[in-house]
């Protein structure tokens, strides 16, 4: 057991591409993600940001290249549960309440949640909406419910696809704060967005996709 330092590499990516109809969606990517690092994936629409995230999450097959998780070739069985992916589709059931949705997520994850669902919802400013069916929430509120999963489930690497979409300014700062806390606790995150995230925070690194 090595001592956890800021330079421990969680995820290493070597010459990764994804092929669609035998054409690479994005140019080969090589980077590594260390504990405590936040990476901003930048690129125009259609440059493959979402695809990159989905490949890293294990939803899509690696085209060429290799992935290493904590120094070993990535096995989905090892990394499952340590990587948390939140995509465009939030994975919330519209007929369930916010609290029920989070409980389902915790149940699926299989570990003891880091905090109570209601507390996670409070942190995201959804006090009073816990027992509202998700279908009645606004787009931004739904996003917040999905992001509450980040607080609930212990995962080292967060893969967030457009976490700022639909959020107001308060929400944006909130996400930045959550990401900061996560990084400070030794976690890492890969975030796609069009607008630069919290630029003042020195932890952010940038990856550019596309031509």
């Amino acid at each position: 057991m090595t001592v956890q330092t800021a330079s421990v590499s969680l995820l290493e990516v070597h010459a990764l591409t994804f092929l669609r109809h035998d054409l690479p969606v994005f140019a080969p990517q090589s980077f590594s993600l260390c504990a405590g690092e936040l990476v901003w994936v930048e690129g125009a629409n259609g440059s493959g940001k979402t695809t990159l995230l989905r490949v890293l999450a294990g939803l899509l097959h690696v085209g060429t290249g290799t992935l290493y998780w904590r120094g070993k070739a990535l096995e989905r069985d090892d990394s499952a549960g340590e990587i948390l992916y939140i995509g465009h589709q939030l994975g919330l059931k519209a007929d369930l309440t916010a609290r029920e949705n989070l409980r389902v997520a915790a149940g699926l994850h299989g570990s003891r949640p880091a905090m109570e669902p209601s507390q996670a919802l409070r942190e995201l400013g959804l006090r009073g909406y816990e027992d509202e069916p998700v279908r009645r929430l606004s787009a931004g509120q739904k996003k917040r419910v999905a992001l509450a999963r980040l607080l609930l489930l212990p995962a080292a690497l967060w893969l967030l696809d457009e976490p700022y979409a639909n959020l107001d300014r308060v929400g944006t700062t909130l996400v930045n704060r959550i990401l900061g806390t996560h990084a400070a606790a030794g976690g890492a995150a890969l975030v796609t967005t069009h607008t630069a995230p919290d630029a003042d925070d020195g932890r952010w690194r940038r990856i550019r996709l596309g031509a």
Binding site: G87, Q89, L92, L108, G110
Partner: peptide, 22 residues
């Protein structure tokens, strides 16, 4: 269909629990 539309299925596939059991 509904699980695909709202992305729940992705979360199922990514879950550490065995997919066959779920």
């Amino acid at each position: 269909t509904s699980d695909i539309e709202d992305g729940s299925l992705e979360q199922l596939v990514l879950s550490p629990q065995p997919l066959a059991l779920l």
